[in-house]
Design a protein around this nucleic acid. Structure first.
Lengths: 168, 168
DNA sequence: TAAATGTACGTGTACGTACATGTATTTATC
DNA sequence: GATAAATACATGTACGTACACGTACATTTA
């Protein structure tokens, strides 16, 4: 049985449009405050939608990201540090994610010859194959789900960068 | 020592504006794909900024949210289910978050008289006080950090709702 | 009213995040 | 060249998420 919240279950939430309905709140202090919550909620929504798709491949969102980053510099290998600095969530514990990928034989660890402190990660044949299969699905999903136009995408990008303009 | 990624440490990331710089990538397939990553990154950024502020109060982002939700219906009590359906992350394990708030004596659990399956949560005096102090700080932080205008906030909100318009 | 079904919540597990610390190795400094 | 500082990574802990399942209680149905 699917977990439920109020009258809506998790599947329903994925189709819910309005923030007010999603978090059962109508009183926001301002559009700006609402935007903050909206960013958090939309990120959760995006992650959930893609995670559901990745489940068929036995991958988590984060494991998929690491595989994609590795592919990005293929055939050049990458060390853990260089993977970490490309992750979206900057506190990702990359060694731990690598542990799981290694268990599934999707990547291999070896010590760098140039700097023995570095652990160099290689995508295996199997990892390449799984990534190829899953990324087709994910790209298609994004195409189906994110139906905003390029212009709207660009507008969204410039607004989000503006949001992040200020430091602490 | 602060954890580092490439040349940037976590504190630096908080001030980084451009997504390209943040995730060390310049080749996005489209503005729409970039927007997807931008939403995820901005959400991480927002959470990190507020979590740092909440640390002074011994609260996590999620614990703070639960306290705020409780205050929202104060003095009326809330059951676990009704808290859960107001959380931004819909799979939050609310009983576990309540466990920690209860340990810190910020809330109290009791069984509902109307429906013995329900656990009713009450904000304690101490919880009220801590929430009051911390929310002043958080509201101020948001005011300082989110310097977009109300119009920009409204534009952002309508774009984000458009992003979520499509189901799986 | 007895049995079946549904609901609310607690709890267990795998995984991820945030952060601190330990260890091996490299680089900087004297 | 020896020592100190910095770096790369692994690992431990507390907490959160995603999800499955168990138990107590409520509601529906026969």
């Amino acid at each position: 049985m699917q977990k439920e919240f109020g009258k809506l279950d998790v599947c329903t939430y994925i189709c819910v449009v309005k923030l007010e309905q999603a978090i059962q709140s109508t009183k926001f202090k301002s559009e700006v405050q609402k935007a903050g919550l909206n960013i958090l909620y939309t990120a959760w929504w995006l992650k959930t939608v893609t995670s559901k798709e990745l489940k068929a491949f036995g991958l988590t969102h984060e494991q998929y990201n690491v595989l994609r980053i590795l592919k990005g510099s293929y055939p050049e290998q990458m060390c853990v540090k260089n993977i970490a600095c490309r992750m979206i969530e900057k506190n990702s514990n990359v060694p731990r994610i690598i542990d799981r990928l290694e268990l599934k034989k999707l990547v291999e660890r070896s010590t760098s010859a140039f700097d023995k402190r570095e652990t160099v990660i290689t995508l295996t044949e199997r990892g390449m194959r799984l990534l190829a299969e899953s990324s087709v699905k994910i790209d298609r999903l994004f195409g189906e789900v994110l139906t905003i136009s390029e212009e709207e995408g660009a507008a969204l990008n410039s607004l989000l960068e503006k949001v992040r303009e200020n430091e602490e």
